[in-house]
Design a protein around this nucleic acid. Sequence first.
DNA 1: CACAGTGTGAAACTCTCGGTGAAGAGCGAC
DNA 2: GTCGCTCTTCACCGAGAGTTTCACACTGTG
Lengths: 139, 139
Amino acid sequence: MKLSVKSDYAARAVLELARRHASGKAQRVEDLAEAQGVPANYLVQILIELKAQRLVKSLRGKEGGYLLAKMPAEISLGDVLRCVHGEIFDTAALTDSSCPLELRGAWEKLRQSVNITADAITFQDLLDEGESKEKMYYI
Amino acid sequence: MKLSVKSDYAARAVLELARRHASGKAQRVEDLAEAQGVPANYLVQILIELKAQRLVKSLRGKEGGYLLAKMPAEISLGDVLRCVHGEIFDTAALTDSSCPLELRGAWEKLRQSVNITADAITFQDLLDEGESKEKMYYI
DNA sequence: CACAGTGTGAAACTCTCGGTGAAGAGCGAC
DNA sequence: GTCGCTCTTCACCGAGAGTTTCACACTGTG
């Protein structure tokens, strides 16, 4: 059960946008990509998906780029993950009639567990955590 | 984030062994495969991995086959999942230094969440659940 | 119009997963 | 011993998904 790098990239991009959210300015794909070490051309595709789900918005032309469409506190990790794939936790077994019912129930429990955990983490949380870690560094 | 069919197959096989555990007899790969709708040649590879981790044991020759190495109550879904892959929840991000610390923390939380949930489900639980569902059917 | 940016689709590339096949090795029956 | 049954091991293959890159169209600004 492995998380795709795409998911990771998406989360990094949103986190970077959250960090720069206060500036109010649109951020260029190129800059976001460089800041997070993500291939720019790939990031574009991810951002388009994020935009389709209204997690971010974009501006064209000069001074164009990407912005968060909501406050960091209103975007959860679950939102981002569900955006790049459909369900966060996916398995053929859940729709496979040859899979025993009780086992399907178990997969369902795992799914719920992941969903609940991912939905509980907002990007505001991550921002706060990042800042407190920064402080720790100076102690 | 998708659960491999291999994991599903492994869980089905162990569940089937658990169901027949009371008989005390070794179960042939062929029978297990047919009972759970799994390609026999593929199931062999999975069983060998399960054996390497001492979740099942095997007997050769006539009357040979596979048996659980422990009681169903002593085998958790987490044990089986960790057996076929290494960690249940895996991602390159966790060892990628270019991934922000706070984000890695978030992935770690997801991992823990999955581990805890999977470890809490034993195959005895699944057996019990299966039986109670059977009863329900006759009401 | 020219420029700086996003939007979109497709090609190429890698890699893992799911599955197959066959030869080898232990065990029991005759 | 030898034969049949079963697990054991290994090599391999095809398909599909995930990742990346590229080229080009589109859109707003000055």
